[in-house]
Design a protein around this nucleic acid. Structure first.
Lengths: 208, 208
DNA sequence: ATCGGATTAGGATGGTTGTCCTAAAATATA
DNA sequence: TATATTTTAGGACAACCATCCTAATCCGAT
């Protein structure tokens, strides 16, 4: 494992490895700022202030702002994949794993109330900007969609799996949007409970 | 009715009535552009090009861009109130009226797939910008929330009315967000059907 | 110790933004 | 018709933006 990691870095040596820390800092700072302020409303100065590097120096790491966005989306995709893999390992049953998904709304309740869902708000913004990375951002949704779909398949709901996946994906999105608009914690909790109940209904429906 | 309308305009005479057309043009153009491109991404030039007036002239009608936003929100609030009133008159039963709400997703399916929900995306954007009009924009949600709540009360679901209202509001939002991200018409239709079924469930639950 | 590429800082550039100013045109009032 | 007010156009403005350039500095390999 350690060797693998070392090799992986070694392969990227030269143009990459030495500035990896700075590059990573930029991506992580941009990730947070894009989430909290939106992509368009975040300037190079904003990111530079956080990372504490000069504006001009930026273009040694990224050719353009769009390239930073692409890197941020990749970063989020990777983070999400890891999280889903983790859930796959931790969750004892498919319903457990789906419950993990539903409970993001609780775990991330505070940031969601302040800034909405990082996936949904990014996709919405890029749609308005008609941005080239729009499709790439939607892959974040696809990641969840396919993962959820797989869980439903494992529950023996092959035929409806994708629709069921889209269903809770949509409900999570809706809850995030309203939580952001109203700042109502109780509503979030109530909806999470309902979604878990709904999940139970789907499962018992299988048994029949 | 005609007299009322006339008087209403007459009261605003002088600084208002004569430029009402231009002002209204600005607001309506801004309304559309804010929806399609987002508030921040829409410039004065953009609006001016649509309305065909010069940039500089703008400040005779509005003191600032924020003031245009405020006017757009007011405009949308008024439009929404009228629509809800209309539904109140047209819908033969509370369930009919709630179905009218659910069916916005069908009626406005194409713009929603392109640009998302006008209410949800505006609220999200203003939240990211930390904009002063954030609260005012949320009133658009409140309008729907209270209207829906009233319908559920009329269905004899006093106690849960507000939660039920928030529930379909959230689901509509989620459907809009995913429809925008995926551009999937079939999904919209399937979810609308499910929401109508859910509504039926709530009603039969009352009878018991 | 020297050299060369990687990395940095900081300023220059051109374009766009929201805002403001002024003078002309249009319109209303008398 | 003469005067006052509203409405307009178009340019000036400072601020900000993404981007680019150049010269200094760092650091690893020789």
């Amino acid at each position: 494992m350690v060797v693998l990691k070392y090799n992986a870095n070694f392969d990227l040596k030269g143009s990459f490895m030495s500035d990896k820390t700075t590059r990573a800092n930029i991506v992580e700072a941009a990730d947070q700022l894009f989430y909290r302020q939106g992509f368009e409303h975040t300037s190079f100065s904003n990111i530079a202030n956080v990372v504490k590097i000069s504006r001009g120096n930026f273009y040694h790491h990224f050719k353009s702002k769009d390239e930073i966005l692409a890197a941020v989306i990749d970063f989020r995709l990777e983070k999400t994949r890891k999280m889903l893999d983790q859930w796959e390992m931790d969750g004892e049953s498919p319903e457990d794993r789906i419950r993990s998904f539903i409970h993001i709304l609780i775990v991330n309740r505070d940031p969601i109330m302040k800034h909405g869902c990082p996936v949904g708000t990014l996709c919405s913004e890029l749609a308005k900007l008609n941005h080239a990375s729009q499709a790439e951002a939607s892959k974040l949704f696809t990641l969840f969609r396919e993962w959820l779909s797989r869980q439903f398949v494992q529950l023996g709901l092959e035929e409806e799996a994708d629709l069921l996946a889209m269903h809770i994906l949509a409900r999570s999105q809706g809850v995030a949007t309203l939580a952001n608009a109203f700042g109502d914690e109780a509503f979030v909790e109530a909806e999470v409970k309902q979604m878990c109940d709904w999940l139970q209904t789907q499962i018992t429906r299988t048994v029949k």
